[in-house]
Structures are given as structure tokens and as C-alpha cells.
């Protein structure tokens, strides 16, 4: 059995928090460049240009792309032949978040109680999703999630008879309701199937797929494409001030579900589609 010390996990998470907040992934930057070339609105092109310039400044100076450095979401794929030694696994992740946000000059945006709302001061705790997989690897994805876009997300339990069209309609309804608030251009993560919470987790995971890579199932790829076209015909545009670039991509993930259900979750993500990955 392979042993992994908690210090290794803390160090990796610390590093990834900073990397994710400073360096926008190349695929997202490329999608912005392509969008700027296509954009018909002059103001829209200017705004997309500002976003590109901002990304370059953040990368060069090692500062956050956006001041909302998010609540930290950590996806873990833990090999079943791994033994974590030296302390608690979850504490190791949270210690990495604490160090990353403190030493990286990132904003601390987490309150300890959702109603009493006192800031924890170090951006902990993270939201941690653990999946146990075969093998002796440990794969970590750190995704700081800003609330401006997260607040615009939605879940709906559809009637199965509504089918693909019902899903497309709901995705559009969520984007329409969000309007300018989530800082378009956005990335739309969609989870279809499972149960309410499964759909929501799938929607978040869908955001990490390389942008513009269609789903491997043709009918899901078609649903993504149709949704994207409809969203970009809305006129919302960059920052909601009008234009043809409202979303950079719609990315869906699916899971088997109950005979009587069609859960759909739509996770809205701003252009700062931040995530860093590492295999330990």
C-alpha cells in the first residue's frame, strides 16, 4: 500500500490555490481570444480586450485575476491502495487553503455560519468532494469559485417527458435570469441525471473539461451546441451590455437516473474559469 504524507497534500493544495487564482488556463484564454474575433459589438470587443489584458497582468505580476478568489472547491480522486499518513486528510487540505490564501495575498471570502456571517479569516473550510478510485494515485483539482456567478446557478427536477428540449429550455432560463450579473462571457456547466445533488456535482465538474471539447455522446454534444447557440442569440453579450458573446461554452455531464426523474443542474461560471490540477 502506497503511503502519502499529509504534508505533501497541504503543499500541493497551497500551490494550486495560488496558481489557479493567478493563471487562467490556456484553453479559457484561447476561448476569449476567439470570442473577441467573432464579437460584433464594439464595446463588447473592448471589454473582451480588457479581460485579456487583465489575464496577462495577473499572470505576470502573480496577482489574482479577480478579487473574488472564491470559496475553494477541491475535487479528490483517491486511489483505494493509498494510505494517508501523518494526520487528517481534510485538515491537510484546509491547511493548504489557509496557507495558499494567506501567503498568496488572496481574498478571504468564507464566513463560518451562513446566517451569523463571521469571516473565518483564512478562507477555510474548503468544499471537498472525494471519490475513491482503483489504483494508488491521488489526483487533486482545486477550483476557487466566485460567488457572483455561483449565485446565478440553478437546479430543477424536470418531468422526463420534457426530454432534451426541456433541458435546453431550463439552461436558457437560468442564463436569462442571470443576465449581466455573473460577468459574461460565462461558461455553463450542466449536470443531467442522478439525483438533485448528483446533478449539481456533475454541473460543477463539467466546468473543468477543456473548453470547446464536445461531449463524447453525440446527443449530449448536440444539446450543448444548441444551448450555446440559443444563449449567444440572447444579445446579453460581454458584461451584459449587449453583444454576441454571452457564453464561451456549454458543457454537460450525464449520469443514470430514476425512471420517474430528470434532474438538471446548471452551474454558472464567469470567464475566470479557474482550476488547477495535480497528481501526487
Amino acid at each position: 500500500m502506497r503511503e502519502i504524507h499529509v504534508d505533501q497534500i497541504t503543499g500541493a493544495v497551497r500551490e494550486m490555490c495560488m496558481q489557479a487564482c493567478y493563471d487562467l488556463p490556456e484553453d479559457v484564454a484561447a476561448a476569449l481570444t476567439a470570442a473577441r474575433e467573432r464579437e460584433e459589438s464594439e464595446l463588447g470587443r473592448e471589454i473582451l480586450g480588457e479581460l485579456q489584458e487583465n489575464i496577462a497582468i495577473a499572470r505576470e505580476r502573480r496577482v489574482a485575476i479577480c478579487q473574488d478568489t472564491g470559496i475553494t472547491v477541491v475535487f479528490v480522486k483517491l486511489g483505494q491502495d493509498v494510505r494517508i499518513v501523518g494526520g487528517s486528510f481534510n485538515s491537510a487540505i484546509n491547511e493548504g487553503v489557509r496557507r495558499g490564501y494567506t501567503e498568496g495575498y488572496l481574498r478571504k471570502s468564507v464566513v463560518c455560519d451562513p446566517l451569523e456571517r463571521k469571516n473565518t479569516g483564512d478562507n477555510t473550510p474548503a468544499v471537498i468532494h472525494i471519490e475513491v478510485v482503483p489504483g494508488d494515485g491521488l489526483h487533486l483539482t482545486v477550483a476557487p469559485k466566485g460567488i457572483g456567478s455561483e449565485n446565478m446557478s440553478g437546479v430543477k427536477m424536470l418531468v422526463p417527458a420534457l426530454g432534451s428540449q426541456g433541458v435546453i429550455d431550463f439552461i436558457y432560463e437560468v442564463v436569462e435570469r442571470a443576465g449581466p450579473n455573473p460577468c459574461p462571457p460565462i461558461v455553463v456547466g450542466v449536470g443531467i441525471g442522478g439525483t438533485m445533488e448528483k446533478a449539481a456535482i456533475l454541473a460543477k465538474k463539467a466546468l473543468f473539461r477543456p473548453l470547446g471539447q464536445p461531449h463524447s455522446l453525440p446527443h449530449i454534444a448536440e444539446l450543448e451546441q444548441k444551448s450555446l447557440e440559443r444563449i449567444n442569440n440572447s444579445g446579453i453579450g460581454p458584461m451584459g451590455l449587449g453583444g454576441r458573446t454571452t457564453a464561451l461554452a456549454v458543457q454537460a455531464e450525464v449520469y443514470p437516473t430514476h425512471i420517474g426523474g430528470l434532474p438538471v443542474a446548471v452551474n454558472i461560471q464567469c470567464h475566470a474559469c479557474r482550476h488547477a490540477e495535480k497528481e501526487l
Binding site: L51, I57, C66, G148
Partner: peptide, 13 residues
């Protein structure tokens, strides 16, 4: 007024 959301490093200048 609106400022460009997400252009945080640029605006700080």
C-alpha cells in the same frame, strides 16, 4: 456606473 467585472488587476492600477 459599471466597471468591467473580473478585470481586477487592471482596475487596481
Amino acid at each position: 456606473f459599471v466597471a468591467t467585472g473580473g478585470a481586477a488587476a487592471l482596475i487596481a492600477d
